[in-house]
């Protein structure tokens, strides 16, 4: 590995005997302060690494739940800069979980690739997921990330077929295995050929694997955990945040609402090992 051992993702997956839990939440949904408290609560519920979504006007890999979260956060004017400040604040408060930003490529281009990765590393974040930046287009971003000791997380999909080997060989940090065709969002049933796909991915790579897209219940977590190093849940948590939106916005009730979401996540993390 060329990355620095200081990177929390690498530190986390140094021990692969434990399965890891990766929640996704949108930064600034419903407020930046609520996001700060939610991350702390969800970490206590057993989350190991966070995907922090930067809201985007045209999130074409996302389903309706995360689209709505994006809209709520955009109304608050949340940008990359706010997400980086949030990461710094979390690190200053002693947060030790891995922190990975999730952003579409255009905001990164407009921020400037070199500046983005320099600021990402300086904030204390460990990497970034860019869903619309396939391997063929990711050269400049990967070079900048390596220079600053953070990871560009690659994605691999059930339709990747012959590309699985190529993607697996290049993956660093962890490899994000897309478990459903389509956009993000909870699904009642997962593909029957999913475990075959995950087995193929694991054969292709030395990187840890994390499976996500459509996973929403403890049963699904329990079923998939043996086939990957980590499980990612996004929309199901975002849906809970949406449910308690008004409580999360009101400082008087934020703590109580965070407690409810923490309990929800705890059910998911309990299904992991």
């Amino acid at each position: 590995m060329t990355t620095t051992p200081a990177n929390r993702i690498d530190r986390l997956f140094a021990d692969r005997s434990r399965k890891r839990f990766i929640p996704f939440i949108t930064v600034g949904d419903p407020t930046l302060e609520a996001t700060f408290q939610l991350i702390q609560g969800i970490a206590e519920a057993g989350a190991d690494l966070f995907e922090l979504g930067i809201p985007y006007s045209d999130p074409l890999a996302d389903g309706p739940t995360i689209q709505r979260a994006s809209q709520r956060a955009l109304k608050n004017g949340v940008s990359i800069k706010d997400a980086l400040q949030l990461v710094t604040r979390l690190r200053d408060s002693g947060m030790e979980a891995g922190l990975v930003l999730f952003t579409y490529v255009n905001p990164v281009f407009q921020y400037g690739i070199e500046r983005f990765f320099a600021d990402l590393a300086a904030s204390g974040a460990d990497g970034v997921v860019i869903p619309d930046l396939p391997v063929e287009e990711s050269g400049p971003a990967v070079a900048a990330a390596q220079k600053h000791g953070v990871h560009v997380i690659s994605l691999v999909a059930p339709t990747s077929d012959a590309r699985i080997q190529m993607i697996g060989e290049q993956a660093t940090g962890f490899l994000y295995c897309v478990s459903s065709l389509g956009v993000t969002g909870a699904r009642s049933e997962l593909r029957s050929d999913l475990t075959d796909f995950l087995a193929r991915v694991r054969e292709s790579t030395n990187a840890p694997t994390a499976v996500g897209f459509g996973i929403s219940t403890p049963e699904q977590v329990r079923t998939l955990a043996p086939h990957a190093d980590a499980v990612i849940v996004g929309s199901a948590i975002v849906r809970e945040i949406e449910r308690y939106e008004s409580e999360l916005k009101d400082p008087a009730t934020t703590g109580e609402a965070v407690g409810k979401i923490k309990n929800f996540v705890h059910q998911l993390t309990s299904a992991l090992q």
Partner: peptide
């Protein structure tokens, strides 16, 4: 061959679509 008109164009899509 990468679908670029000068610097413009390319394939900025989710991995799920790359094979298609």
């Amino acid at each position: 061959e990468k679908g670029r008109f000068g610097e413009y164009g390319g394939k900025f899509v989710p991995e799920t679509l790359m094979n298609a």
